[in-house]
Design a protein around this nucleic acid. Structure first.
Lengths: 340, 340
DNA sequence: TTGTAGGCGTTATCAG
DNA sequence: CTGATAACGCCTACAA
């Protein structure tokens, strides 16, 4: 199928390419008659401008890049959903790449996006990202950038986050309010800001409530998945048989914990109460239903694109004021802390 | 940040653009000396070819489009994962758009991808897709196309699927083999091929086993989600209190069914056995653990890209032989049919 | 109102 | 071995 070009329309109509172009873009200086004939022919030939040529001229592709640790993940896929929807509303398409929680991959993928000359980049950092040179490179190249969820405080750019410390604090306060005296924390990896913040929220809340912080009650995951939740809970119950509350860094970890507790017939919430983080769907259907922190994934996606969009509009300006948007979280109390 | 171009390198080196271009692309007819100086300068300036210009010249963008009903979906996100990984291996980037199960959206999104001139398109059809004109338009424009999972038999192109009839048959045979006499089916919407096939697999298997097919035991979902599983099971138990097996079109529906059965204290699997379809993670952590059909999502993604890649390589050839790849499924028997 | 000319950055052809 | 020159398809001053 040969592509239709302005040239072709022009020659068929016996007019110049310029006039065709102007007619199609509704320039005022084209006669009604000419415009109509162009519009008509263009329509009947199914003309669509060659985006490669348009990109080259306008230096933009109406495409953004999204770098995410993993697509198969309830929270992230919600964010992706929000980003794609919002981007589409503004006529943007989204290229998605995965870092698989590896810094090396992240660097490589960002390079690909940069070379593809996307108009802007959205990133949720991998757990490995302690080196920020590749992120700064994005800014050096003048490409608008927004970080969301897993951010780095060292990077100066717009961000969309939740207040992990406060959310964690809410979770732990809730456990205390329902009677927990000895609360363990299965935390995320040491590096990512959000797992650090959740840990700090846990620690500070204990202290605020005059419960001495005990480092041996803190278990550190590598990946924060089901298996680690299961295994650390086993270990926890051995080391601290009198534990009565568990704050898990993600719902997946919490579900691992619950699975183990169910297996050894420890009653939830009577003997041990469990709370997770993120409000994955799964938490509603396990037994007992999981209490958790509601983290607005879709909204985070929408907001992230909005900030990026704003920055893309103002690209030429030398001074652009970066914003950090903090989204509200909520606590969802279910059976794993309240009982039936 | 100003972009580096061939022109700039050429002028700094006092040679022609042509020579620079050749040196960078390792053409044989450039002197060792010239090549090295070009390579060196290009590297120190962090030169990367302007992909917009390259696209325009080569008429390809090394980008493919992926049209999917919804991103937030365990099975689809696994497929996406496979596609992105495999595409990346071949130097392709993936633009993802969602149809949200609406034909109108699907048409619109495909148009966007076509206008963006992606090198190929991968589609899992929306439930609404009974009209195939928009799909045929892709082929008319000469854009390579592969359909996966939710396909249409009316479209002549490469496809990656599972044998839904056989998989459904396996599920129902399993229920029968563990003693079910009266098996209900909570099916998917009427239109999509895979829900039709699963229904047919159910029906034929009953007949093959001399169990009369009873249309009143079949409930038809609109969306195949948790709520429908829950509600239809409630209805089912009212209408057929003696039902002893449920084959659900997806794990989500099955989980809805189990949730209701648990609520009214119907014993699973003693009184009613339940089997789902797709092997979502969730099925492993609910009580009882869900028996299901294993559907290889990641592999389906990989294979889909591979077929598309093949077709993109042979784009110029007038006759390209379409392939249909059928992936193996398996049955995973857990507590919801076997007990502990 | 219409058209000419130049350029976006790269690649390919063909002379020198 | 090197370099002019002409595309790719579109956009936009600037002339006419």
């Amino acid at each position: 199928m040969k592509d239709i070009t302005l040239k072709e329309i022009a020659s068929k109509l016996g007019i110049s390419i310029t006039t065709v172009s102007k007619a199609l873009k509704n320039y005022p200086d084209v006669s009604e008659k000419t415009r109509n004939s162009v519009l008509e022919l263009a329509k009947s030939l199914h003309f669509t401008p060659n985006s490669f040529a348009v990109n080259l001229r306008t230096k933009e592709s109406k495409t953004i890049g999204l770098v995410i640790p993993e697509v198969v993940h309830h929270f992230f896929s919600s964010v992706i959903n929000g980003i794609i929807d919002e981007a589409e509303k503004h006529g943007y398409l989204v290229i998605i790449v995965q870092s698989n929680e590896s810094l090396e991959m992240e660097i490589k993928q960002i390079e690909m996006l940069l070379n593809k000359r996307v108009d802007g980049i959205l990133i949720s950092l991998s757990n490995d990202s302690n080196d920020d040179e590749h992120i700064k490179e994005i800014q050096r190249r003048g490409v608008p950038l927004v970080l969301f969820d897993k951010i780095s405080k060292l990077i100066n750019c717009s961000k969309v986050i939740i207040n992990d410390q406060k959310a964690a604090s809410d979770a732990v306060e809730h456990l205390i309010s329902v009677g927990c005296k000895k609360i363990a924390h299965i935390r995320g990896p040491l590096n990512p800001q959000n797992s650090v913040d959740r840990f700090l929220g846990y620690k500070k809340t204990l202290e605020r409530n005059n419960i001495p912080f005990d480092a041996s009650l803190v278990y550190t995951c590598k990946g924060a998945g089901f298996d680690e939740g299961y295994e650390f809970t086993k270990q926890l119950l051995n080391e601290h048989p009198d534990v009565d509350g568990i704050f898990a860094v993600t719902d997946m970890v919490a579900v691992g914990a619950i699975t183990y507790l169910n297996e050894i017939n420890v009653k939830i919430p009577e003997q041990v109460k469990v709370i997770g983080f993120s409000n994955w769907f799964m938490g509603q259907v396990i037994t007992p239903k999981l209490s958790t922190i509601d983290q607005p994934g879709y909204e985070m996606g929408v907001k992230s694109f909005d900030l990026l969009f704003e920055e893309m509009q103002h690209k030429s300006e030398t001074i652009f004021k970066y914003k950090t948007v903090e989204l509200e979280t909520g606590i969802i109390a279910r059976e794993s802390t309240l009982g039936k």
